[in-house]
Design a protein around this nucleic acid. Sequence first.
DNA 1: GGATGTGAACGACTTCACAGCG
DNA 2: CGCTGTGAAGTCGTTCACATCC
Lengths: 223, 223
Amino acid sequence: MSKDGEFSTRQNGSEPRPSRASVTRLSLYLRRLESLLQEGITTVSSGQLGESLGVTDAQVRKDLAHLGTHGHPGIGYDAPELVPAIRRTLGIDRDWPTALVGVGNLARALLRYHGFLDRGFRIVALFDADPAKVGQFVDGLEVHPLERMGPVIATTGAELGILAVPSEASQSVADALVAAGVRGLLNFAPCVLRLPSHVSVVSVDLTVQLEQLAFLVHLGSTG
Amino acid sequence: MSKDGEFSTRQNGSEPRPSRASVTRLSLYLRRLESLLQEGITTVSSGQLGESLGVTDAQVRKDLAHLGTHGHPGIGYDAPELVPAIRRTLGIDRDWPTALVGVGNLARALLRYHGFLDRGFRIVALFDADPAKVGQFVDGLEVHPLERMGPVIATTGAELGILAVPSEASQSVADALVAAGVRGLLNFAPCVLRLPSHVSVVSVDLTVQLEQLAFLVHLGSTG
DNA sequence: GGATGTGAACGACTTCACAGCG
DNA sequence: CGCTGTGAAGTCGTTCACATCC
């Protein structure tokens, strides 16, 4: 430390808190580390870890400094030690029971994609407004009507909600999910949700992403 | 411009170039403006435009300064004037013929979602590695085998590609698309693609998004 | 030697504040 | 008077550089 270092009794050590960008990178490090572990590699340096992801070594070290663990100077980081530490920091060292609203093609794609399950995002309830879909079973889960949201979410203990419904319905469905006790939403509808501040929202707006891509390509061709 | 600023003969005026965050917001402004126009509202102030999106008025003005157009002091901005200006800046004042690889549930969801078509992202070709799917018609489009990528992309003139294939296949499919002349990729696979620098990539990594959400909720409960 | 951890410099983006215009 | 446009200040995140430790 520059002057001295006496108030070092921060029980958790580490920086104030990971930034959003840093959290994104931690997710990527985690996936890479798990992959390395499967190859039997247990020691990795910040340079190696960042290389495949296009991140500088210094950035990797700063990100990993948010964790409680420490690397080993001259050696690198220990993957079996790092993986649980990242999980803990991200809050994914436990299961997140999740409700999925809107059982269309997108929902089916999400259900089939087992990358979620493997990482603790267990879909525990399905809802749809369409009476024709209610009562059907998809991937072993019954589709419930929106009206039953309260009791079903209480029973299943869902804490997160995924909105795969049309834009017009998304605000009302979001309100219903929040009323039922859900604390975080992943929104696929192209709209901005207005929700109480204790509810977290992450939006995946595919149109915006495509427009970003168009802009980048456009920039490449025109300068 | 720290010392002086004599090479100010940038014919297009305006700031150096919109940042990535700024481009994202421009997409959102565009959508909001189109919605306002449908309600018959043609004049809007920076404050009004930003309010619904959670953006400050100053930020909106800075973003709009990237455009060639100007607002009207004391009045606000003119939506019919702004909409084409944003389109031009984003490079979406034209069609973007797009190829879609991997005809699973995600692809079907994207095809059904007409928000893309309306905005010029026309899906013009479908590909799949599964022989059972090849030859089928989905939403009026024939599914081609991967081997035919070169000629089909040449014929259809696709400039963008959407990767809705499993992780393991994504790098090779990306390489094939690039070899066929595609200049931009929207990647849904949870992996980092290595591509020549003249190709732009936007990745939508759903696991990372869910982990971000878990982190935010986790943060809310633990402090 | 090789790699970590971290102040300090740097750069990018956001907010502030206010001159200027309609 | 209201609202834009924009330098200046402020904030946040990244990169640099180097002391430190195995």
